[in-house]
Design a protein around this nucleic acid. Sequence first.
DNA 1: GCCAACGTTGGC
DNA 2: GCCAACGTTGGC
Length: 166
Amino acid sequence: MDLNLKNNRNTRIWLMKSEPDVFSFSDLEKRKNQKEQWDGVRNYQARNFMMKDMQVGDKVLFYHSNASPTGIAGLCEVIEEAKPDVTALDPNSEYYDPKATQEQPRWFAVTVGKPQKLNRFVSLVELREKKELKEMLLLRKGQRLSILPVTQHEYNCILTMASSRK
DNA sequence: GCCAACGTTGGC
DNA sequence: GCCAACGTTGGC
């Protein structure tokens, strides 16, 4: 499976999926200081993006998954580097991982903030219709990773879509 | 709710 | 290390 997900230092833009029923873009806007640690990720590839590749200042497309409609709900930024995801240590958390310990936290998460509204929601259906986005990882069959790198070109294209009418 | 397409687990 | 069984993701 060649998804071209290798470590890429030029990557400064990411797409992060969240189920709006759990945590939506407007939830981020309402948070104190408008920031939130991206906890609950329990996939190593997504974790490694947060631990190894994401840097403070990276741009993030906030994507609503498992929703109607699904799509890009807003923008935000990485504002703190990855730190231990303490929900893994909490037996009462739905994200509890018995294999995680204080010494070996196992799961890490960046903190995102600076939510920035888009003129409008850009749905997955619309993204699929764009020829320019044909190669976008999000749109690949079987791609389920909850954190994905986005190219500058894809980012620009989506911002243009969001600032213009359907 | 269905189910394709993944990822993870654990026996061997 | 292989791989079947199982669990999860996420669009529809």
